[in-house]
Design a protein around this nucleic acid. Structure first.
Lengths: 262, 262
DNA sequence: TTCGATTTGTTCGTATGTATT
DNA sequence: TAATACATACGAACAAATCGA
């Protein structure tokens, strides 16, 4: 008669808590994932075990998991189990990369094969956050940051200049060597090496004239109109983890997005 | 012993159809809405009536409705009923309008109060589709179209020049008078006057130099970098219904988007 | 290859809670 | 207050996918 062990710190949810029961279950699951009880790629216990550990019915648990699957926090595979999402598949590779060659007829954009960009690191430096960077990343001015400059090429031509800024504290151990030898995408590196899962991003775009630095990196003339995209990548709780300024040569490429579902 | 009337042509779904039962239910509901059996704003029969008419359990019906709610095709209100979505609320007013004043610290974008743009129609003309317009709207070159030019102002300053192109056939009866006297948004006019519900939009953005026409309308110098956004608005089945080219003066405003959930 | 155990996916039904009219 | 309609919660039974013996 041993009382069953609660897998990885799953806490039984109270009946009279705030909001519907399935929301509490969702929060509890999210808490366990965020706190590292289960990391990216881990297989969660099966549904009946979780439901029992939390003291809810399996239907209630499923409703909570449904929402987390929708938010890409969890992934379910019939016959295999439920897993903490790993952002390595193609769907995620391009989730935050939306530059495509220009087309004569702008409709069939999503039908074409998307090209993988070639990424060349052209700068890796440690420094201290300025006012804007600190505000964006919720740091204090002067806090240590890492700044990384990348040139992205499509079809052999430089199209994008990325300037990444991250907190050196959050990304402890991030070296140029580690960065250059990453096996997959940058966001995947964040996840595997630093336990940071990027769930969403907020962007602001504007048209500007290319400055000298940009002109040099992208191989365009100074003053040419280029697209500047300021992106803040967010993890759980909308916590900002990366500030990225992308400068895009839109002479032959477009910045693409699909709007839907509020 | 009268056999119960099937509300507005709801067809009983077959048991052995393709895919899960709730998908068939979803398709059937979508069919009825698209075919006009229930128009925007209409109250559907209650869940048990629909479930019975379709010959499925109420849980299966709810799962189908869940997805349609998520896609903004239907809206549920506890205690009131389930309705065909009307795109009049604030959430939709701005769903496809993403220009905001520039901020010093780009993080807290979504927290601020969003401003309603002032829309001035500066052109309304009938014509014939060119090759690009025809390809985008899935028409034939030469088919009749309506082209509308609008100037959008924020804080009293012209910020956006919109060029809209729609099929004159799809939007039969669209006159300058009707367009100018619309009570709400343009997409709401499409819905109420022409039964067209815009569900999604596809966009491509690029930086260009302002031409004479743009410079005149936006009050900027010729050659200034401006943001050009090509948008295709889509209805059911990803059918294109509007082609819009927005030219945005990003000197003091940004084009904003939030990326997430694949 | 086959079979069985495991795990999620689907469908059903019922009871109760909550918002609206 | 009563009736109506959606929301939540529970649980059972079977289907389908996966994996290893």
């Amino acid at each position: 008669m041993t009382s069953p062990v609660r897998p990885h710190g799953l806490q039984r949810v109270a009946a009279g808590g705030p909001g519907p029961l399935y929301r509490q279950v969702k929060r509890e699951l999210q808490r366990v994932v965020e706190s590292g009880g289960y990391g990216p790629g881990d297989n969660l216990p099966n549904e009946s075990v979780i439901a029992q550990a939390l003291g809810v019915s399996i239907g209630t648990l499923r409703k909570a998991v449904d929402e987390l699957v929708h938010e890409h926090v969890l992934v379910r595979h019939q016959g295999k189990g439920t897993f903490v999402a790993l952002h390595t598949d193609d769907r995620f590779l391009f989730q935050f990369f939306h530059v495509e060659p220009r087309e004569e007829f702008p409709l069939e954009a999503s039908l074409r094969e998307r090209e993988y960009p070639q990424v060349d690191c052209v700068g890796f430096a440690r420094g201290r956050a300025d006012e804007v960077e600190a505000a964006v990343l919720r740091l204090h001015p002067g806090d240590p940051v890492v700044r990384i400059d990348n040139r992205l090429s499509l079809g052999g031509r430089a199209v994008v200049h990325d300037r990444l800024v991250v907190s050196a504290h959050t990304f402890k151990g991030l070296t140029e060597q580690r960065f250059l030898s990453r096996p997959s995408t940058i966001y995947n590196l964040y996840q595997t090496d630093h336990g940071i899962t990027v769930l969403r991003a907020r962007e602001r775009a504007r048209a500007v004239s290319a400055g000298r630095e940009t002109a040099r990196i992208l191989g365009v003339a100074v003053g040419v109109p280029v697209l500047e995209v300021h992106r803040v990548a967010l993890t759980f709780g909308d916590k900002p983890v990366e500030y990225r300024i992308s400068t895009i040569n839109t002479a032959a490429h477009d910045y693409v997005s699909l709007l839907s579902k509020g």
